[in-house]
Design a binder for these strands. Sequence first.
DNA 1: CGTGAGATTTCCT
DNA 2: GGAAATCTCACGT
Length: 209
Amino acid sequence: MNNQLSRSFYQNDIHSIAVDLLGCRLVRYIGKDSFLIGRIVETEAYKQKNDPASHSYKGKTKRNEVMFGEPGHLYVYFTYGMHFCCNVVCGPAGQGDAILIRALEPLEGIDEMMKRRFGQLSNKKAQYHNLTNGPAKLCKAFGIGRSENGLDLCGKNIWIEKETIYLSEQIGRSTRVGIKQGKEFPWRYYIKDNPWVSNTDKSVKIYEK
DNA sequence: CGTGAGATTTCCT
DNA sequence: GGAAATCTCACGT
């Protein structure tokens, strides 16, 4: 709680933030002194200007209006008829840039995450490594949906705490996942060799900070 | 392990 | 009307 990122963190350059978020803890308070906590291990940057893959590219609409609001808020979108994914709004207010959180390493509240993600099922798909290794999976595990859209990360429901990556870890960089336009931009960042990074790209480029 | 199709709704053209 | 910043299951190797 004392390391909670403040508004000014989110007003920086989007690529610096996407890198700095790696290793940080995403926290949700679920009552009774209980928390869901995951370490951010994969992010993607989306920009309003000249980035056709971004939801904000064509300007403000009802769906993406949170992206054009104040930084440090959560932009949650619904896609493929069934999934939610969450972003952190970044840059100066009104700019329309955001960072997609693509994967987490579960740290605390794991039983609660399991319950949200898999229900009461105890079959073999309910596995630890499958809990939060994708943008829609982590939203399910954290109970993030329509009603969390627009939520202020400088509040007391969901927030991010500052942490750095370990000395033994390297940052990988690649093109973004699952898009048709803007494919060429290497704006995906992840902690190399972390088991929870989504498995769709085997790029091995190392990002030098 | 890799590939392919289906699920299912919202938003914008 | 069609695509979408995805995931899961089934099936073939």
